[in-house]
Structures are given as structure tokens and as C-alpha cells.
């Protein structure tokens, strides 16, 4: 996997009521997104990994355009440099 300067980020994604499955499906179609759904709640964890700033901006725009997100809370952002 290619390393890059953009932080790997993790978010808590709160779907609109009843829309968790749709939101998960949409997120998984966006390059650089991994999704971890809660087993017992309508809640998703989103982990993003983009190689460049332009890719990161594109991702942000795609996330903003998703119709089933109620709230997206940033939890962590880690760069290789910081973790070294």
C-alpha cells in the first residue's frame, strides 16, 4: 500500500433513522472508505485513507453529498509521520 501525507481518519457516522444499510452500501462504493457497522445499533464507523490532498477533498465532497447521513463526527486523524 502506498503511503501518503494525508491523515488516516476515523469518524462515527450517524445514519438517518432506518437508513444504516443504505448508508453503509453507499460508503463502501467510495474509494478509500472502510466501514465498520455496529452490531446492535444504527451506527457506523468510517475509516478513510486517501493518498493525496485532492483525493481527500474529493472524498469530503462525496461524503457531504450522501443523503442518508444525519451526522458525521471526526474521532481521529493519524499521519505516518506523527505515528513514527
Amino acid at each position: 500500500m502506498q503511503t501518503g501525507p494525508v491523515p488516516i481518519k476515523s469518524y462515527i457516522a450517524w445514519p438517518l433513522p432506518g437508513k444504516a444499510a443504505e448508508l453503509q452500501s453507499q460508503l463502501l462504493q467510495i474509494p478509500g472508505c472502510q466501514v465498520l457497522p455496529a452490531e446492535n445499533r444504527e451506527l457506523l464507523l468510517l475509516i478513510t485513507d486517501t493518498p493525496t490532498e485532492p483525493a481527500e477533498k474529493l472524498l469530503a465532497a462525496q461524503l457531504e453529498a450522501l443523503p442518508h447521513i444525519q451526522c458525521l463526527s471526526l474521532v481521529a486523524g493519524i499521519t505516518e509521520e506523527e505515528a513514527a
Binding site: D49, I78, A83
Partner: peptide, 14 residues
């Protein structure tokens, strides 16, 4: 290392 960071970011979210 990148994969490890992905895991850590996921762990922080959990």
C-alpha cells in the same frame, strides 16, 4: 505501517 494506522484509527472510533 499504513494498515496498522488504519486499525488504530478504527480502534479510536470504536
Amino acid at each position: 505501517r499504513r494498515e496498522m494506522l488504519i486499525r488504530m484509527a478504527g480502534a479510536a472510533a470504536i
